[in-house]
Structure formats: structure tokens, C-alpha cells
Computed example of a mutant assay.
Amino acid sequence: MDVKLSQCFIAVDDHDKALAFYRDVLGLEVRNDVGFEGMRWVTVGSPLQPDVEIVLEPPAANPDFSPADRQAMAELLAKGVLRGVIFSTEDCDALFSRVEASGAEVLQEPMNQPYGVRDCAFRDPAGNLLRFTERPRS
């Protein structure tokens, strides 16, 4: 079978703050910015992966959600428990320095993991967990 990842979704509560982080700090390019029925979806991606997109979406984008569902999603997002994404990088330490300088919440400084990668972790402006891994050079 020929199955590849095309898009993943990250809930954000403030698209402008999310853009400042994903575009300006991480260097992802903006591929789409769409408003519909009072909501906004922004698609970003790495220039190194033109066929993979990250959609920054409202936390309760489903029109069938009840007001209670919307409130529950907002509370889960505020706790930082909705989604997580793992990015790869060629230089974990340099990336860590750049992201830390942006003021992002540090969860883990760069460290070598027993399973063979060096990684670090942050929260994005909405509280989502982001890990950055560097594979060992061969």
C-alpha cells in the first residue's frame, strides 16, 4: 500500500500567537489561512516537506459540538493535554536555543535518550506538547 501522512491538526486558541511561534520561531511556511463561520484554520508546513501540512485549528472546530463540549475542549487545551507533535531536526541544541529565546515554556532541555535520539520539549503558545528529536549521525 502507498499510505503517507498528509495533514495533522493542532488545536490553538489564538491563531496570531500560534503563527508567531510556528512561522517566526520554527520557520514553517504558511500555506493557507481560511476563515469560515467565525472560525479560522491556518495551514503551515516545513519547506523541507512540501507534502506534509499542519493545520492550526480552533479547539472545538466540529459544528456539532454542544456548548458544553466546546467548554470541555477549551479546558483541555488550557491544561495542555489535547495533542502533541514530534518534529525532527538536525541540531537539537541550536533549535532549543532559538525556541527558548522566544519565551516558549521549556518542558525538557536537550538530552540523549536511551532509545537513541537527542531531544527536547516545549509547549506552544496554546499549551500543546512539542518534541524535537535529533537522530544520531551515522
Rank of each mutant, 00 (worst) to 15 (best):
W41L: 13
R131K: 10
P67H: 06
A104Y: 05
E134P: 03
E134K: 10
R70E: 13
V42C: 09
Y115N: 09
D124P: 01
P47M: 08
C92S: 05
A94K: 02
Q7T: 12
D93I: 10
P59H: 06
V106S: 07
P50A: 14
Q49E: 11
R31A: 01
A101W: 06
L130P: 02
V12P: 00
S88F: 08
Q7D: 11
D51I: 01
N62E: 13
T43A: 14
S97P: 04
L129F: 14
G35I: 10
M111V: 11
D119G: 14
E53M: 04
R123P: 05
E29N: 12
S88M: 14
R23S: 14
V3R: 12
A78V: 00
E90H: 08
L107G: 04
A94L: 13
P63L: 10
A11G: 03
Y115I: 03
D33G: 04
R98L: 13
S46R: 05
R70V: 15
E37T: 06
E109P: 00
F65R: 01
G80S: 04
A68I: 14
R135Q: 11
C8F: 10
T43Y: 09
E53V: 14
I54K: 02
P114D: 11
F65Q: 09
G80R: 00
D13T: 03
D2R: 07
D2H: 15
D2Y: 00
G103L: 12
S6D: 02
F87I: 05
V34C: 13
L129W: 08
S97V: 13
Y115F: 12
E134W: 04
K4Y: 00
L95A: 08
E134I: 08
M39H: 11
P47C: 15
L77N: 03
Y22T: 10
L5H: 08
D124R: 06
G127I: 04
W41C: 01
A78D: 09
F36T: 03
Y115A: 02
A20Y: 05
W41N: 02
D93V: 03
S66F: 11
K79R: 06
S88H: 12
P110N: 02
R98N: 14
N32I: 05
D51A: 12
D24M: 11
F36S: 15
A104S: 12
E90S: 05
R118V: 05
A18C: 13
Q108T: 10
A20D: 09
R118A: 09
F9V: 00
P125S: 11
F87A: 13
G27M: 13
F87E: 03
Q49N: 12
A20L: 06
P63I: 10
R23G: 01
D91N: 15
A126S: 00
P114I: 03
E37R: 13
S97R: 15
P125D: 05
V12G: 01
C120A: 09
F9S: 12
S102W: 08
R123G: 12
A11T: 01
V99T: 07
E53T: 00
N112W: 13
D119E: 15
S102C: 08
